[in-house]
Design a protein around this nucleic acid. Sequence first.
DNA 1: CTGAATCCGCTATGATACTG
DNA 2: CAGTATCATAGCGGATTCAG
Lengths: 103, 103
Amino acid sequence: MNKDIVCPLNYTMSLIGTKWKPLILFHLLNGGVRSGVLQKKIPGISNKMFTQTVRELEKDGLVIRKIFPVVPPKVEYKLSERGFSLEGILRSLDSWGLEDSKH
Amino acid sequence: MNKDIVCPLNYTMSLIGTKWKPLILFHLLNGGVRSGVLQKKIPGISNKMFTQTVRELEKDGLVIRKIFPVVPPKVEYKLSERGFSLEGILRSLDSWGLEDSKH
DNA sequence: CTGAATCCGCTATGATACTG
DNA sequence: CAGTATCATAGCGGATTCAG
């Protein structure tokens, strides 16, 4: 009996339940963006965690990584269709923060 | 300039952006419950992290802790009004997991 | 020059045993 | 029953190094 299926929330958390994943996904809602630009949008994230996290998202099929074979190196990240299906949740999290921070 | 306000999502994540917080909050949606019962609903959480996490939620005003001065000890946790305001988000996360796990 | 991997020190986490 | 203490491990952050 798989616990992730007993409560689907466990399944969701296994995919996006970390400190940085929702933030990265949120900043990709507006479209694909270059690696360095994306990283600058995430305040406080370390280089290492950015790379590690975005790669996990890629592995889980939420983010697509596109490499341009040019000099200097260029890498872009964008949401997959599956990643986009989280849009409502991500925007709700953002809206909740906006409202709650007023109180 | 506070980064948590530049993007409200940062603020939200600072409150519930950990592995266990959404799970604990979700299992409190149906009402107050005794400590041990709540912990059993969270598969995989260690005793230490359960106590630590639920106390942080209490400190942030999302969860209310009620102590009954009896023997054996009895402690109940329930959502505060502020905690309940996350209901929509928590149920969306659960629903998303249910849908996504089908694919 | 950009993107990412490696190394090291530190913090957070988990398992177990124990206290009130 | 609820929570704490202790210790081993895993994960994170920062600086540096490497690759293209």
